[in-house]
Design a protein around this nucleic acid. Structure first.
Lengths: 136, 136
DNA sequence: GTGTTTGCAAAGTGTTTGCAATTTA
DNA sequence: TAAATTGCAAACACTTTGCAAACAC
């Protein structure tokens, strides 16, 4: 698998982030393959398991840098735990609180009729829909 | 203002919660007046300011007991901070990340067309819509 | 009296920060 | 070599827990 390396390199270049070993490795883990939802802890375990020694501090730094660069999107569904989503296009989420399972709902699978006018002096940044599910 | 006391008492009775001084006081702060959004810290400060000495531990206990009793609803909008909403009917929220301002959107002010089928083995618990706003 | 509730202080989570050592360009 | 990045360990914010004292019934 050589191609993902090149891709990761370009992704970082385009984002103006210096392509360090850690960032390259994390970018490959995150952006190779399909859409992913990760927590810092989760990504850290995965990186270490993939022979990419990274500190948790760097994981946090990187997740925030990637988010700021528009490569990731933070999803708030759980108090006290942040999820990051590699799918940055408009879409929504299913969330299973007891399992922590988070998965995408394509934007066109649901539709919001009439977004209300926001409070004076503010503008809408985005609309997040979380469909909370539990075991049947 | 004597009436709220009676109301708070009944609320606790109906919920099967022993009407202690702390719970009565907090119930009055929360359910007297209109809909409110509070954090634990916020409610604690308010209680202490209202001459109701309560420990933060009790605030947390009480917020969870009230939530479990269906008197409050937890709103997840901010990683690392829990909001509790005294409006327990179906509705949605505006959230201003930089100010922490959280306010209700009446259920009938927006409409979700087509809620997608949840993952196998799960059922929809509820649908939360958060309209994230920022300064214009 | 008996079981519940409270409050303190300690412990726990997930996250951020300061700073010296390392790495990149 | 100069500037950016890493990683450790300490610090943080918020929340939970253990347990003895206080309280409600």
């Amino acid at each position: 698998m050589m191609r993902p390396y090149r891709q990761a390199l370009d992704i970082l270049r385009d984002a103006g982030l210096r392509p360090t070993r850690q960032r390259l490795g994390l970018a490959r883990l995150l952006f190779d393959g399909g859409d992913r939802h990760v927590t810092a802890e989760h990504l850290h375990a995965e990186a270490v398991g993939a022979n990419l020694p990274v500190s948790l501090a760097t994981i946090y730094n990187t997740l925030h840098q990637f988010t700021q660069a528009g490569l990731l999107r933070e999803v708030v569904v759980d108090p006290g735990r942040s999820y990051f989503d590699t799918n940055i296009s408009a879409h929504h989420h299913f969330f299973h609180e007891s399992t922590g399972d988070l998965r995408d709902i394509p934007a066109d699978a649901m539709e919001v009729a009439r977004v209300p006018v926001p409070p004076t002096g503010t503008v809408v940044e985005r609309v997040d829909i979380i469909v909370r599910v539990k075991n049947a």
